[in-house]
């Protein structure tokens, strides 16, 4: 099976004197569903940041979607990010754009045709049950609704890899269920690799998944 992520002796740090992840070795198969857990401050979000190139490896090698992120150029990083779908804990929606335009963002960046873009956005709005909110701005929505918009945006361009940082952290049950359904659907139907950083793995997951745990800077698979 193809590997979408390969890490060799990967060390991550924000400063020279404090290493968050220490010489980690792991790989993730294409099309798999992966949970990464760990205590607060263990380095889960740091690892996720390194996967979309927001934090460069301190040491070792990290290959995501065939792109080596250690010493990556900005053009190569942009190329990789165009094929990623990222869901952030704080949503990261553009406040001055409508819900519709926020979902369009990856499609615009990837140069999709206007009619394709509109159809895709309409379909996603239906899936996240926010059709009636299309013309609203993020600050006018609840946290759960904003996270569903962020989820729709992450799925818009059929990415090869979805990276989600605590996607249901503070959400109500309804919004959480919508998010999990979408992530499972993308993984099952589109064979998209999904990596979710979370504190708790939902009890009723509809897909097979792998579980990695981070502790004291080391990453180990939980069998």
């Amino acid at each position: 099976m193809d590997k979408v992520i390969v890490a060799k002796d990967l060390s991550l740090a924000y400063s020279d004197d404090e290493t968050i992840i220490n010489k980690a070795n792991f790989s993730i198969d294409s099309g798999s569903f992966v949970f990464i857990t760990g205590a607060s401050g263990s380095g889960k979000s740091t690892l996720l940041k390194s996967l979309y190139g927001a934090l460069k490896p301190k040491e070792g090698s990290l290959v995501v979607g065939g792109v080596e992120l250690n010493g990556v150029s900005s053009s190569k990083l942009n190329f990789l990010r165009k094929h990623l779908g990222i869901v952030f804990q704080d949503y990261k929606l553009v406040k001055e754009w409508t819900v519709e335009k926020n979902i369009m963002l990856p499609l615009i960046i990837n140069g999709y045709d206007k009619s394709v873009t509109q159809n895709q956005v309409d379909s996603l709005l239906k899936h996240v049950k926010l059709r009636h909110q299309a013309a609203k701005y993020p600050p006018e929505l609840s946290g759960g609704e904003q996270q569903r918009v962020a989820m729709a945006r992450a799925l818009a361009h059929n990415p090869i890899l979805i990276l989600a940082d605590e996607p249901t952290g503070n959400l109500d049950d309804y919004s959480s269920q919508v998010i999990w359904n979408l992530l499972e659907g993308a993984n099952e139907q589109l064979k998209t690799t999904v990596i979710v950083v979370t504190h708790h793995i939902p009890e009723t997951m509809g897909v097979r998944y792998k579980h990695y745990h981070i502790e004291f800077g080391a990453i180990r698979e939980v069998l």
Binding site: Y52, A54, L77, N78, F79, L80, R81, K82, H83, L84, I86, K92, L93, V94, K95, E96, W97, L105, P106, I109, N110
Partner: peptide, 10 residues
């Protein structure tokens, strides 16, 4: 903020 978000999507 907008430029950063756009950058995160490549």
């Amino acid at each position: 903020e907008r430029m950063s978000i756009m950058g995160l999507f490549g």
